[in-house]
Structure formats: C-alpha cells, structure tokens
Design a binder for these strands. Sequence first.
DNA 1: TTCGTAGTACTAGAAATATCGTACAATAGA
DNA 2: TCTATTGTACGATATTTCTAGTACTACGAA
Lengths: 112, 112
Amino acid sequence: MRALAHPTQAEMQLDTVLSALSDPVRRQIVGQLANASIDQACSAFQLPISKSTSTYHFRVLREAGLIEQRYSGTTILNTLRAADLEARFPGLLRAVLRAARSETTLATSEVE
Amino acid sequence: MRALAHPTQAEMQLDTVLSALSDPVRRQIVGQLANASIDQACSAFQLPISKSTSTYHFRVLREAGLIEQRYSGTTILNTLRAADLEARFPGLLRAVLRAARSETTLATSEVE
DNA sequence: TTCGTAGTACTAGAAATATCGTACAATAGA
DNA sequence: TCTATTGTACGATATTTCTAGTACTACGAA
C-alpha cells in the first residue's frame, strides 16, 4: 500500500493553508468535500483541468493539511480535515466555505 | 488631492481577498492595522522590504478591498475595512487575524 | 496473465507574483 | 521658493505557481 505524507495538526501553517485556499480549483474541491457525505475519489470531481494538474492540486491541499488522502485500491479517497482545521485555525474553514457558497450563489443568480 | 480606487463591498472577490491574505508581509500589515487605534501611514510599518515593494503590497491590499487608503498631505492613511469585510465575508477576517495571532505567539514562544 | 482504470513522476513551458532601483510627483514647512 | 518627506511609476529580474503531455506504477477484474 502506498503511503501519503500528511502534516500533523501542529504542523499546519496559516501561510500554506491560505495559499491553498486562494486557488479557485482547490476551493471547488474543498467545497465539494464539505458537502459530501462520503469520501470522494479524485475522479469524482469535474475539474476544468487535466489529470496531471488535478494531481498537483490535490497534493497542494494534502500538504497544506486541508485534506486527507488514503488509497483504496488504485483510487484515492479524499476527506476534508475539518476537525483538525477547526482545532488549529478556529472558524477559518467555516468562514471560507460560507464565503465561497455566497459568492457562487451570487454568480449563478447573475447568469440567470 | 490624488484619488485612489477602492472596490465597493459588492465588488470584493473571495479569490482576491484570500490571495491578498496569503502573503506574510500583507498579513503583517493587516494585523498591525487591526491592532491600531488610529489610522497608520505606510511609513509606520516596519517591513523587511524596499519602499517600492511596500507600495506594491499596499496596493494589492487596497485593490482587494482589505484596506482603505486616503491621502493626508503626502502621506497616506491606511484603515482596515473591517466592517465592509464582515458584511461581505462574515467571520473571515476575524478568523484569519486570530489564526495569525496564534501562530505568532507560537513562533515567539519557540524562540524564547 | 492480460487488460483497463486511477493516479503519479517527471519534464517543460507559460503566466503570475514578489522584489528592487531609479527617477519622479505632490505636498508641507522653513 | 527651496528642501525634505512620502509615496508612485516604470522597467527589469528572479521566483513561484499553474498547466499539460508522456510514460509510468499499482491495483482490481476478467
């Protein structure tokens, strides 16, 4: 079984977390994970990028501590590390998710 | 009097705001403004960068909507747009400031 | 064992970002 | 009016980030 490195809660850095969240593709991933009731494979995301770029973004999220990735066969199951993040940076993830949601709503209503 | 362009509350974008906050120099500026009881001139910040780079970072913050800049003679007075941010992205600024504060505290206590 | 699927490693290029130096503009005060 | 101060504009450069293609690995299933 292949191993994937994750930072501990204490190792999480605000710098890295905010950089990770400042990319729209990665916020899309985080947002989808936040809504999902079960863990999601990387292929479960409709991202406007190539497979290798997708790998890159998932790695950025994992190394920042935002998601947990574990192998299950050849697929990787992704989970949002919501509790760890809440403990390390209280309120941060919630505020970003809420902001992202409100922005998406606005954008959609503009189109309609 | 020279004019400086600021986004309205509705024009603020999560993307831009998070990018702005993901730089440590800019978080230092925002943190100092959050603590300040009066508006601060750009020169009131001890930043580890040149004057022209400093101008650049203040502009990024202003264009993201994080700070208000207004001329008073040749100096610019900077204010955190805390209320606008709270209205647009509730909880976000607070969470980032709190996270930054806790990280600084940790780093300091490691040195001692 | 062969095949298909999920994702990685590596390389390379494009684009964005952070940095600075120098010359300059605007203003206050002597 | 002269001078000092505060910050900008512009150009150049280094670094980082995002992107993709290609060849590959690991695993499950037929």
